[in-house]
């Protein structure tokens, strides 16, 4: 996968400069003419960015054909092995590819996180092309990702909507048939947001009518708060609850004390 990605990049790098210059020249001329004709500078900027998006999408289509189409189909229409991606939006691609879940390493209960296979630009290109196939959730606005939402609201919403799978401290938990809700510690704010709006794997979709963007921002703020602030009580034992506490007390507390009793009653040789 990595080699094909590299190959794509070199091929593209070799072809980009002449084509891009020509296109830019053409766009520049058209834009100048258009600006004079329409008498607005804004229209020209829009046209320029629109065509950049088209170019990005074209790149994305090639990347898609090389890396994703074998399962999702050349038009992302889906096959027996993988779902259709028409209408999943840029956010889904950014989450799945950006966390390394896609392309999948192997079939299994669920796609698992692994080292990311593409560069930021390549992911943006893929997302742009998939987004062009049909309307879907887009990559969230930076303003919701700052982690400055209401902590108490976020914590409460997290407990009500997320904790049954992800655990109250975001430590993760088990689902059926070998599937699981992963730990949310160390996941970027953008990916948390995208997961909520796209519902990857077994996760339900929390759309904006369900949890507003401000509330999503609050949930992210809560997760970032507990990630940044270690437990007030000391070591957190993985935040797994009474099971890890019980193991700790048997192994370390009682184990340590039994070692002491053996030492206290040892006869000198």
């Amino acid at each position: 996968m990595a080699t094909s990605a590299t190959r794509t990049r070199t091929r593209r790098a070799g072809r980009r400069s002449p084509l891009a210059s020509a296109a830019l020249l053409l766009i520049g001329l058209l834009a100048t003419g258009g600006a004079y004709a329409a008498l607005t500078a804004g229209a020209s900027a829009d046209a320029a960015s629109e065509s950049q998006v088209t170019k990005l999408a074209d790149e994305g289509e090639k990347l898609f054909a090389a890396n994703c189409a074998s399962c999702h189909g050349l038009q992302a229409q889906g096959t027996e092995d993988a779902p259709s991606l028409i209408g999943v939006g840029a956010a889904a691609v950014d989450f799945q590819v950006g966390t390394g879940r896609m392309p999948m390493a192997a079939s299994g209960p669920q796609a698992e996180q692994k080292p990311v296979q593409f560069t930021e630009e390549q992911i943006a290109a893929l997302a742009s092309w998939v987004a062009s196939l049909g309307p879907g959730p887009s990559i969230p606005d930076e303003s919701y990702l700052a982690g400055d939402g209401d902590l108490a609201v976020g914590a409460e919403l997290f407990r009500i909507n997320c904790a049954m799978c992800h655990n109250v401290a975001g430590a993760g938990g088990a689902l059926t048939e070998g599937k699981f809700a992963p730990s949310l510690m160390g996941v970027s704010a953008k990916h948390i947001y995208e997961a909520m709006i796209t519902g990857p794997q077994n996760m339900p979709v929390f759309n904006d009518a369900n949890i507003t963007p401000e509330d999503k921002s609050a949930i992210i703020s809560y997760l970032k708060y507990i990630e940044a602030n270690s437990s007030p009580g000391g070591l957190d034992l993985g935040n797994l609850g009474p099971v890890s506490e019980g193991l700790f007390v048997w192994i370390f507390a009682l184990g340590g004390i039994v070692a002491i009793t053996v030492w206290l009653t040892a006869k000198s040789n």
């Binding site: 407990r159 049954m164 935040n239 609850g241 009474p242």
Partner: peptide
């Protein structure tokens, strides 16, 4: 070592149940 971090669990509410 932390034990029973009630600040993570929050107040009781009959609807949510945490994983684990």
């Amino acid at each position: 070592v932390t034990i029973n971090p009630i600040w993570n669990y929050g107040p009781y509410d009959p609807s949510p149940v945490s994983a684990g």
